[in-house]
Design a protein around this nucleic acid. Structure first.
Lengths: 342, 342
DNA sequence: CTGAAAGCGCTTACAG
DNA sequence: CTGAAAGCGCTTACAG
């Protein structure tokens, strides 16, 4: 690797002090237009692309880098349409503000990542983080926005999961004769696809998946329907094949559920696929609802009834709040989208 | 923002020289286990998370950051299943190697981004870049891998687009009576969805979309079929609504094509949707093929015949090659996947 | 095993 | 408008 030119080298090469060259790049008002142009042209010619970000950050304490701290691994996040929509929204706003994006995951606990946390001058946390990254960022005093979770005195963007799910369940369930079921992710700590137990329902849980679950239960209650624990399936991860397994468990029961409330569109898509394999019609034999309103929800056969989370707008908002040093705690709208599936 | 502790502060607080604390974090063999443990514990207690990455990078010339340089905007890339698959593969490998990910786009030409290019100690270019970022990285001498394009003496990962498309066209087209058509993106420089002209076919083009186009033409020739320029539709961007417009143009022609070769699965999905709207059956009235084999290709109704690009594996390979300082120029397999659509 | 000191490439108050 | 100099927070060869 060639040694790159430094300000000092350039200073010698073109016979102007380092301060002036630095000013040519960073503070145009500090020198004459003519000199500035000459310097910039010479730099171009000799192949100096401007001051190094690292030295500049060290000196000025500002990096213009924003970190997105994901609560899942980067690899999983890239496969999750909600996460990628959200990041697309963030990057749209940050690109305009000339910020760079560093991708971090709280699932990683290496020294390298902890070190990397010193680089960004702002953080967007997406989902409740593992480990101590959150604590370290709070301690650093750097601006941050948290999304899809909550912490006292920290600006945040959330949706009302309980209310959205209550509305959705109340729409999909018609009366007490219906047999509703739920498929959700990360309800309990278990690596298997299986129903939860009555005991799991006892405790007051704060996680998003439980806010949704309690919303479904409330919506069912409005229609005088019961959702039994044995009809509430836990998936360790929000992926298609686990969802298919959950769907098969439910749809092969003697007393087959005729409404399946899914905590993501991915799950709902899987349920529709399994229903097709079993020659069950959606919504005729079983009504299916999703959550998120990802692009594929509309293209699914049949198109999914779901809750629109507006991941892209969520990302835009979080990024704008970070740039504006907002201290608000925003609750975004999550709208019921009725299509054909349920 | 609170001032964070520096090595010097910590040194005073716990009465050990800065060098020793640095060694406690970075070179465990340079001090006794007992002392190291004491130092780490004290640091934990007073809230010092270890040496700052910025200062360390400046001093040591190594950042453990890898940049992914995308040829599209970050916002678009997050909506492109191939790009996200590819990045998922990269991050899987790099996370294990304790590398951090900086996301850059060659569509951005700000000083801030140019500065940011000084941070990473390795680059993965995805798609032929705009502007001078490629030139600057080459000049820096830092390791890089380019993907989906080519440059003399630069290690790369590609697939044989021509051969794959030839095979696909030869599969989908049955004889000279068939009326095949093509929908591709970025064939010409034009912001409208419209057919190309005979003149556009004259020049020798290197872009991926033209490699594919020439492959389709070669495959058609094998089956004695002609693809007229008026049946080759250009889309400015690979997005669903443009693809739908292209599909409508083709399917409303008096002499309606009965084979549509699409340069991405997204386009093929759009064509299937339009066909459904027009009450045309796929593959009965019109055979449709995709490219990429994204997850949704298999879930589409009907499931898509397509070319599997293995974006995830491509990302893994590119990342591994970067870490290994490979200088190979790899041509990956792209396999024909025959499903029901064509 | 430990510490004093140089220097990585910048920015910025300050003096001229 | 321009330049000399301090210092951002580290790592590392070197001396003890």
């Amino acid at each position: 690797m060639k040694k790159n030119l430094s300000l000092k080298d350039v200073s010698k090469l073109i016979g102007v002090s380092t301060a002036t060259i630095s000013n040519a790049f960073n503070r145009p008002d500090q020198l004459s237009v003519a000199l500035r142009e000459r310097i910039l042209k010479e730099c171009e010619r000799i192949g100096y692309s401007g001051p190094s970000m690292i030295a500049r950050s060290l000196r000025s304490g500002q990096s213009d880098v924003v970190a997105i701290m994901l609560s899942d691994s980067l690899t999983y996040s890239f496969s999750d349409p909600m996460a990628t929509d959200f990041m697309a929204g963030i990057t749209e706003v940050l690109a305009k503000a000339h910020k760079q994006i560093l991708l971090l995951s709280s699932t990683i606990k290496s020294d390298a990542q902890i070190r990397a946390e010193s680089l960004p001058d702002g953080f967007i946390f997406y989902g409740a983080p593992e480990g101590d990254s959150f604590k370290r960022v709070i301690r650093s005093g750097k601006p941050l926005i948290v999304v899809d979770f909550d912490f006292p005195d920290v600006p945040s963007v959330n949706i009302d999961n309980f209310e959205a799910c209550k509305q959705l369940a109340s729409h999909a369930i018609q009366n007490g004769i219906d047999v509703p079921a739920i498929i959700g992710m990360r309800l309990v700590t278990d690596n298997h696809v299986k129903p939860i137990t009555a005991g799991d329902l006892d405790h007051d849980k704060q996680e998003i998946s439980w806010q949704r679950l309690f919303g479904y239960l409330a919506g069912a209650q409005e229609k005088s329907a019961d959702i039994l624990p044995e009809n509430i399936i836990h998936l360790p991860v929000n992926v298609l094949d686990q969802a298919e397994e959950g769907a098969r468990q439910l749809l092969s029961k003697p007393k087959r559920p005729n409404v399946i409330l899914c905590m993501s569109d991915i799950i709902a898509i899987a349920v529709c696929k399994v229903a097709r394999e079993l020659n069950l019609s959606v919504p005729g034999d079983v009504r299916v609802t999703g959550f998120d309103d990802i692009a594929e929800a509309e293209r699914n056969q049949p198109p999914l009834t779901t809750i629109s989370q507006q991941g892209y707008e969520k990302g835009q908002l979080a990024a704008r709040m970070l740039l504006d040093k907002s201290d608000e705690r925003v609750m975004m709208d999550a709208k019921l989208v009725v299509r054909e599936s349920g």
